[in-house]
């Protein structure tokens, strides 16, 4: 696994390559020669300045989540971090009318997210995103039962879609078997939150299609949906 952050000259070259490719698409091979020449120049005379200036181009206040399996695991870590923060606060600011049965379950939900997040962090080791991820919980009013359970279902449905959609991208297939075990538990969470909010409403046709399949979303789609919940600036352009 690669380091989660830091200089990555390969990425810079690839980026240059692909942008040049667009400019020279369909034109004479001469352009390829000059591009190579440019890169050699960049690596030589202007190299030092260029590479330092474009060290991942990640500003100091932005966290780079890595690429490949590392990026995917950091991505799931972020999803779990949002859920962990959510349920931690939901247990501190208990909604009005939370009875003993719901309190027991909502404490469980918090611990399950700790169990997921903690494992992902352990697996990532020093490739985990560094620094604190600041979660924005302003979309939810924790004192209000409807708000809390609605947002819980929203986040759990999104987590299910995230797990289902990310599995196909792992190079190390053993992660697929692992995250599948977590995905069905997230689905249990969602159905529970939905059920105690509105009886029998364990899913709806925005979540489950006519084939009876839950959603699968790409990491980019999930990160876009999570944007209101995350304050920390993240560089996740490497995600599919």
């Amino acid at each position: 696994m690669d380091r989660g952050a830091g200089c990555d000259a390969t990425v810079i070259y690839m980026k240059m390559d692909s942008s040049s490719e667009q400019q020279t698409m369909g034109s004479a091979p001469l352009h390829n020669v000059s591009r190579r020449g440019f890169l050699q120049l960049a690596g030589g005379v202007a190299g030092a300045g260029l590479l330092v200036a474009s060290c991942r181009k990640t500003p100091p206040d932005t966290q780079y989540i890595g690429k490949g399996d590392t990026g995917l695991l950091n991505y799931l870590y972020i999803v779990e971090e949002v859920l962990t923060s959510f349920y931690t606060q939901a247990n501190i600011t208990q909604y009005y009318g939370m009875d003993a049965a719901e309190l027991q379950a909502i404490a469980d939900l918090r611990e399950h997210q700790y169990a997921h997040r903690g494992l992902l962090k352990k697996i990532l080791g020093d490739t985990a995103i560094t620094g604190k991820l600041v979660v924005d919980l302003s979309p939810v009013t924790f004192a209000d039962r409807t708000s809390t359970l609605t947002q819980a279902a929203f986040l759990e449905d999104l987590a299910v879609a995230a797990y289902n959609g990310v599995a196909q991208y792992f190079s190390d297939k053993s992660y697929v078997l692992l995250i599948a075990k977590m995905a069905t538990v997230q689905a249990r969470h969602s159905a529970y939150a939905r059920q105690i909010l509105t009886a029998n409403n364990i899913s709806d046709n925005t979540i489950i299609n006519v084939q009876g399949l839950d959603r699968a979303m790409t990491p980019q789609q999930v990160m876009a949906a999570l944007a209101p919940w995350i304050q920390t600036k993240l560089d996740y352009t490497t995600l599919p």
């Binding site: 959609g165 069905t184 159905a191």
Partner: peptide, 25 residues
């Protein structure tokens, strides 16, 4: 077979919802 694998994951998540429903009832 990643396409089918993804669909089976999508399908098993629905079973997760069913289990939680029966259990909550």
């Amino acid at each position: 077979s990643t396409d089918i694998m993804t669909e089976v994951l999508q399908l098993s998540a629905v079973e997760g919802r069913h289990a939680a429903f029966a259990r909550t009832v």
